[in-house]
Design a protein around this nucleic acid. Structure first.
Lengths: 132, 132
DNA sequence: CCGTATCCAAGATGATACTG
DNA sequence: CAGTATCATCTTGGATACGG
């Protein structure tokens, strides 16, 4: 007896659907870009390789922990390279890959859209918040 | 005596920098798009107005709570309109605004990028994860 | 200089049950 | 049909201190 309730069918649909979601290329990209420090780090690398300490200065909002974490993820995703030079103290350089440069361009489109439309969004929020 | 320690100066810089960050148009857009159900709801509305229940069917992954929450935020941001028709039972229609349609186009660019590059990213992840 | 480990707060999401 | 309320869980991000 396969008497699944309507409730059960809905749950199954959700599970299946969520599997699809995780495979969506769009969401993969968004989850990379939307991480708090990703965009700033990519921008800081736009004009050439930078040492860890230089990036820390270029992105003063990030704690060292978050900067390192962000860089590790970008490296894992093939967006930046990490080069360690053995000296005392150690030297570490980061640079954009071709893939990283490509993503940076998309990031610029998002920024352009934001600049073009952010006022409309903020205005809508004001109206909504005052209306209720 | 303004003897702020270097530690204190760094903290101040972070605070100031983070204020700037929150005002960045790019991050505002990304925080909208990156919410889990935003893209799917916008897509479901691409071809015309939909009732709440129709959206629930179009986005089966979302619970009713999340669907309502997502729609409320999109409404607040001026991306969709919400129209209530008094009848029994009540009828609620959602539709994209011009601003919402505009954002949907940006969303398509992100999706295109993902489709074009996702394999490179996944390959990079495999390499990274196997290498370490 | 560069990175890691620990602890913690806040927000996002989800499960579930209930209402006009 | 559409929405709300409550509670649990997971993920992000931040503070702080320590290590090679």
């Amino acid at each position: 007896m396969t008497t699944r309730t309507a409730e059960q069918r809905r749950l199954d649909a959700r599970v299946a659907h969520n599997r699809d979601l995780d495979g969506c290329p769009g969401h993969a990209i968004l989850s990379i870009l939307a991480e708090r420090w990703t965009t700033l780090v990519l921008e800081a690398l736009a004009e050439g390789p930078r040492r860890h300490a230089e990036l820390a200065r270029a992105v003063p909002g990030a704690t060292q922990r978050m900067l390192t974490r962000t860089l590790r993820r970008l490296e894992r995703d093939g967006l930046v390279t990490r080069t360690v030079t053995a000296q005392v103290p150690v030297r570490v350089d980061y640079a954009l890959t071709e893939l990283g440069t490509d993503l940076l361009e998309l990031q610029q489109s998002v920024l352009c859209f934001g600049r073009r439309r952010i006022d409309d969004i903020r205005e809508a929020r004001r109206r909504y918040d005052s209306g209720s």
